[in-house]
Structures are given as C-alpha cells and as structure tokens.
C-alpha cells in the first residue's frame, strides 16, 4: 500500500480530505491575473476616472470601497451556500470552502468599513454615521468576526465544522433582516446626508466595473490559496494520525 492511500484512509476515518495541496498552473494564472487587474483598476481610479465635481479627489475612495463591500458580501454568500452543502453532504471540502470564504470575506468587509469611515469624514463631516450601507457593513463585520472566533474555539474539528455551518447560515440570514431594519430606521429619522443619487459618468462607471472585477478575481485567488492551506493542514493532521492513532 502506498503512503498516499494509507494516509487518505486514515483521514477519511475522521472526515473526508478535500482538495489538492500543490499549487497548479491555474493558481499562478489566477494570482497573476488578479494582480494585473488590481493594478489596472488602480491606474484607472487615479488616471482615468474624472475628478468628481462636488466632492473632489476624496470621491476616488468610492471605487475600491464599493468593490470590497461587494466582495465581502459575496464571500459571505459563498459561506452560506457552503454551510448548507456541508450540513447536507458532510463533505470536508464544503467546510474548507465555507471557512476560507468567510476569512477572505472578513478581510474585504473590514477594508470596506474602515475606508467607508475615511470617506464619511471629509464628505459628511463625521467619521462615523449610521448610514445604511456603512451600518450593514459594520454588522457583517461583527457577524463574521464572531464566525472566525467560533472556528478558533474548539478542538473537535468535525463538530466545529457543523457549528460553523449553522452559524454561517444564521449570520447570512441576519444580513437582509438587518438591512431592512436599518433602512426603515434611517428613513423614519431622516439624515441630512445621503449617498443616494450619485450620478455616475460613463468613465466612472467603467472604473467601478473594472474595480469590482479586479476585486472579485483577487477574492478568487486568495480563496484558492486559503483552501490550499486548509488541505495542507488536513494532510498534516492525517499524517500525525498515522503516527499516533490514539490521538483520535
């Protein structure tokens, strides 16, 4: 029996090992593509997009801010779907997908909240306001910080995978509920500031589109790397299990 198959046999006893560990040509291509797209988007933000008339230079935050908020939300939807699939199928790969996506999404939503606050300062005259979109990003930040803390809090991998899947579902369901609550709340107590009605000139729209595309690629590249890391950890766990089976 080869080392490889014995190793995977031990691992299936715990739970199925998902995914490859080695970097493939696709990984390099994806990494390169996302870097190039990121640089192109960056160049467009500062070189191509026109200066906004009323807000001035600070409006340039908008492009990457929207892109990272979008990617954060997208990452959490992936965690939600992966959570459902994990509960239905109990396959380790869905757990890996869910946890990797939440972690990468958390980095992006954190960027969105921080830069949203940096936007609010000069534009709205205060570094924090309970503007609906800023608020929903902050709520998502809290939810997924809790998700990551939950993942870090138990040793029993199989059980924590189920807990995380359930919490990923609960957290994702909370997002639209919060969104409606925050929106109604804000319309009842009207704000002076409004982020609505910002008409986008075509070059601005183009820049936003490229930024969102670049960030989505970046998300995919980071997600793949994060999943590889988790597979490598599985192999290590399986190898350790082979040496000391009584650990399990």
């Amino acid at each position: 029996m080869s080392v490889e198959s014995r190793e995977s046999q031990v691992a299936t006893r715990v739970y199925e090992v998902g995914g490859k560990t080695k970097a493939s040509g696709w990984d390099w291509a994806l990494g390169l593509l996302s870097s190039v797209a990121f640089l192109v988007a960056l160049a467009m933000v500062f070189g191509y997009a026109p200066r906004e008339a009323t807000m001035g230079e600070i409006q340039r935050i908008f492009y990457f801010h929207v892109a990272s908020a979008w990617v954060g939300f997208f990452g959490f939807s992936v965690t939600f779907v992966a959570g459902i699939l994990y509960l239905v199928r109990s396959q380790r790969r869905w757990d890996i997908l869910g946890l990797s996506s939440a972690e990468v999404g958390l980095a992006f939503i954190t960027m969105a909240v921080v830069t949203g606050s940096l936007w609010a300062g000069p534009v709205w005259g205060t570094y924090w306001t309970w503007e609906p979109r800023l608020t929903i990003s902050a709520v998502q930040l809290l939810l997924y910080v809790a998700y990551v803390m939950l993942r870090a809090s138990t040793a029993n991998e199989e059980r924590i995978a189920r807990f995380a899947a359930v919490y990923g579902i609960v957290a994702f369901v909370t997002v639209p509920l919060s969104w409606f609550a925050i929106r109604w709340w804000r319309t009842i107590h009207p704000e002076i500031v409004s982020s609505e009605g910002m008409g986008l000139a075509p070059p601005m729209r183009m820049t936003l589109f490229v930024s969102v595309a670049a960030f989505t690629l970046l998300y995919a590249a980071l997600l793949r790397q994060r999943m590889r890391l988790e597979s490598a950890r599985d192999r290590l766990t399986a190898a350790q299990g082979r040496l000391a089976p009584e650990e399990w």
Binding site: L42, I61, M111
Partner: peptide
C-alpha cells in the same frame, strides 16, 4: 484620507 484608504486597499490583501 484618500491616501490612507488606498494604502489599506493595497496592504490588506
């Protein structure tokens, strides 16, 4: 604020 924001955008990923 703009410079800070784009530094965050580059450094976090």
């Amino acid at each position: 604020q703009l410079i800070a924001a784009y530094m965050i955008f580059c450094l976090t990923p």
